[in-house]
Design a protein around this nucleic acid. Sequence first.
DNA 1: TGCTGTGAAGTGCTTCACAGCG
DNA 2: CGCTGTGAAGCACTTCACAGCA
Lengths: 212, 212
Amino acid sequence: MVNLKAKHIPRATISRLATYVQVLETFARDGVEVVSSHPLALASGVNASQVRKDLAYFGEFGIRGVGYNILSLIKAITSSLDVDREWRMALIGVGNLGKALLNHNDFRARGFNITAIFDCDPFKIGEIVQGLEVRCTSELPDMVAKLGIEIGIITTPPERAQRAADHLLGAGIMSILNFAPARIQAPAGVNVEYVDFFNHLYILAFKHTRQD
Amino acid sequence: MVNLKAKHIPRATISRLATYVQVLETFARDGVEVVSSHPLALASGVNASQVRKDLAYFGEFGIRGVGYNILSLIKAITSSLDVDREWRMALIGVGNLGKALLNHNDFRARGFNITAIFDCDPFKIGEIVQGLEVRCTSELPDMVAKLGIEIGIITTPPERAQRAADHLLGAGIMSILNFAPARIQAPAGVNVEYVDFFNHLYILAFKHTRQD
DNA sequence: TGCTGTGAAGTGCTTCACAGCG
DNA sequence: CGCTGTGAAGCACTTCACAGCA
């Protein structure tokens, strides 16, 4: 039965679906065509029931007694998550990390394109990085409208992260990916995702010491 | 009552404690000396009870009727998580992202030092990046032993991530921070943390489309 | 009085177990 | 016969509500 109700989908499920795509792409690269929930679960580090339940939120993609066709499943997942199209992004903060992300070809390969870059440092404005001109943040609203930008990336130092976020919010951006080690205040309805290296390092350090 | 039992501490709690440190440092920067659970919770994007419960896993750090002294609380948390000391790390994969991390001064500022870097590309071996010589992965075990390295960072392309992990495991590393978009197989007892940009972008894309 | 620390209640995700279909 | 899809059970984390202390 296809699930048409807007049933609540756990955030953890979305996160795992992204992992499944990663793993499925590895399998596809190795020439595998069909996979059942068990090996997919093993390679993803989760329980097999979990895999089936996660997929069931979006439809019935498997064949009983057989498993899942890998290429169809990748398409089904990416389509369900709406990541099988182009997403345009603006980046604020053209420092080391920002430049590294601009050089990161994987973004473009998966349809996530950085199409405008901003910095409030007057010495950086006008510089060309990866074919993009560094612009003043005051130009954000115009560029967002002109280029159809939907996602903002923050790679500023922590003390300037909130200001960068405010610029994005002012330009109507509702989805923010924040690499700065700072929390951001945003009105309800705006989605902020945090990519926080130290968070992960703290977890490693803690587990390392409390061997559990 | 001080909790000396090795009670299980949720992973989510550790993650939030790292966030609290971030937020507390912002408060300290602004000259605030004492904070109660409510504003700390608000700035961290969680519930106030959650803050108090998280802290209670490690001891009683607050003053009833007053709140928490910010500097003492930062010390209490970082000491509880064992991140108030130096941690030495090895990095495998000296590409764009690896170089950006090497230039990232925040690591050193927080005691997480990259002290050796590796790559299997013969054209890169011998190159000096941020004062460190790029070495062949075959030298990993020696360098880990000599420098007292405890954490491995993987910044290779996805298809070489497992090989990099195997090298780290072979050198006795039990804690891995993986930036490559690939899952890693490791024996029980080894901790792998994933820093996965696409995971976050997928979540943003999905939420963006299903406004919830 | 105000805020912490914490048992108890609530909630939501995960795992189980099996019916159902290819 | 094997594996999916799924209700029900289990479990873990979160929130509530208030006793207790400064």
